[in-house]
Design a protein around this nucleic acid. Structure first.
Lengths: 212, 212, 212, 212
DNA sequence: GATGAATGAGCCTTCATTCAT
DNA sequence: AATGAATGAAGGCTCATTCAT
């Protein structure tokens, strides 16, 4: 009996995980409108109706997928040990970390790309939840800027919001627009060398900007 | 007067223009997959079949829309008079110009956003044409870097590709992700003040980076 | 009673049968290109999408319809008890049987008419399946010719393929071309008398031909 | 001036001929419903609207195409010199002629195939005209049967209508159903040998039937 | 006589979603 | 918890036909 219950419970979690995983890939590769519920079911190897049983609608499934991806990023950022170094070094380490994270987990980039095309429709309907998830982003940057004012390793007139956006922009833009940039600049951006060159360039840019 | 009447019917150029304009808006607000041909026809106030008569398919219409938007940007960049100033000033002027252009004409940003979601499917099938349209982008930046080496107003180790990407990234990312950023950072980025603050921040970032 | 209620909904076999029946009529009266999936759905009193759920495409639905019609004919032919009579009598009985079958089930004639207009597109893509279904046709005729060589009731130089085609041609042509023949010969061929006259004529023709 | 007029006249006839020729092919390969007016225009290398200018509608174009094809056959039959031989030989010569005609001009077969699918819709609306065109068919056969009664080379109980249908059926069926027969009997019927074998078989069948 | 532009109706197919078990 | 059957509303695209010159 207990086993039965336990098994079902585990299956529930497992099934949901499988669906979310499949959804992540489908939404990432096709965007919200281009994604197909049928395809998600096939990828997850579950009956289509189960998706509705667990997530109610395609929209809601997208929201959950987005939440999960956001959480994963923020969690990884918070796990960084930045207190042992100067604010300047910490910010560059943050840059490097986020770059590596996005390269390995590009899904968030494309989920957000699609979400912005929809003018933030989903995120708007779940403002508070998303704010809670992402609060640590601004918080961390704000904290590092304060620390910089103390250890004098960073210029003092910086704004946390601008810093967040600039870092994210420099990183995300080149990953997300890899396809079109390659054909506009006639330069392959997908190779390992191109990627490490890009990271260095970003660190240099941010480094120059934030130093006192 | 007679001209006015004549203009509204049986005018190939005008009809095509109306369709492209409508397509621009529809694709911009919904992405390729989310866009509806019916809606484009309605926006353009033409019979839906006319779209197929002139553009053959939704895919091809998207390609033409994308081409036109790209051309408009590149043309505007090339019209800039950058030879009268130092390379350093020229680049910052370029930054400011592109920022203003994208703020006023955000369609290209969203068209590309959708296109990247599709892994550059359309642009890839028309490589040469798109390369021709965009060649001036890299060309201009390359030229300014060379000039910088002469007038010593720019550091010498910069790479034109990286400069292109960084400038575009800093500008485009904040416009394109306005919706999600607002809710992640709990900071309204759509106001005039926020926008001019952002531009200053970008100019400062690029300025710090490129100075010798 | 309960069975009756149960039967009408959620019954795969029954639903498929209804669709196939409706398809048979629609394809028969309009040919493949002229047939409308909407109309088939209406005739079968099912949701149009169900047709795609069960049969994938209009082409595949046509293939299944054709298969079923072929099977019905071959099955009926094989059920004939021809071993108790001479080869000569057997062949004439076969002629009479096929005539009656086609008069009562003209759908196969028109399905094939349409299929031949398409140069056998569908049948070609399912060669093996159709060959399997129809193998008994040639087999039966071949068997009767052999028997005829033994019981000396049939001339010996006959070819099974030619016999198959001639019998089918004499029967099918007059049924299939009833409309145009009536107006070309100014003679009503649809009446019962005309039909029985035609059958006698065919039997006489075949009889004269095959007798030793 | 006269030249100008003449040229236009000649062009008119020539254009109509080009359209009819293209229509013949398109209708033959796709049937009435499957045929595309666009395709006919392309084949004929004329503007689509010209087709409507000359023929009013797709239906009417089909009627004209059918008429022309019928006329060509009847004309060729009437040109046969059958009076110098016995009725028996004349009928077999007729069989051979029609076979050769249909093999070289299969369009009529497929036009009629499509027309019968439509239950003779077009032919019915132009009864008289088609009857006039085809009257010689029955007439000729009737004449030969009468002659046979005189020269005693043919059995006396034959019916002209049945004779017409049987001859046509034996010939047309194997040409029209070549595609499906090949796959049902697993025997290639398109080769030259297969064709001449078929003709011999038909002549034998008819020959056996009509001899006294 | 000849052409390009324009239209409305309709066609095959797909999609997100719900029903019934 | 899980599944197969069923649905209504589009969606991209095509077709025969007409308009205007």
């Amino acid at each position: 009996m207990a086993e039965q219950v336990k098994k079902n419970t585990r299956n529930t979690t497992e099934t949901k995980r499988k669906i979310l995983n499949a959804a992540k890939k489908e939404f990432m590769y096709h965007g919200f409108d281009g994604a197909r519920v049928d395809e998600i079911a096939a990828r997850a190897q579950v009956n289509k109706q189960l998706i509705y049983y667990y997530f109610e609608s395609k929209d809601n499934l997208f929201v959950e997928t987005l939440k999960q991806s956001y959480k994963k990023l923020r969690k990884a950022e918070q796990a960084l040990d930045l207190d042992t170094m100067s604010a300047y070094e910490a910010i560059l380490k943050f840059v490097e970390h986020d770059w590596n994270f996005y390269v390995k987990n590009p899904e968030l980039i494309f989920l957000l790309s699609s979400e912005n095309l929809l003018k933030g429709r989903h995120i708007k309907e779940h403002k508070e939840e998303f704010w809670e998830i992402n609060a640590s982003w601004f918080g961390l940057m704000h904290h590092l800027l304060e620390k910089g004012r103390e250890d004098k390793t960073i210029r003092e007139d910086l704004d946390a919001v601008q810093l967040c956006i600039s870092i994210a922009g420099l990183i995300i833009f080149s990953i997300m627009n890899e396809s079109t940039l390659s054909y506009s600049l006639m330069s392959d951006l997908s190779s390992k060398e191109a990627k490490s060159k890009r990271l260095e360039s970003i660190k240099q840019t941010i480094g120059c900007w934030i130093k006192p």
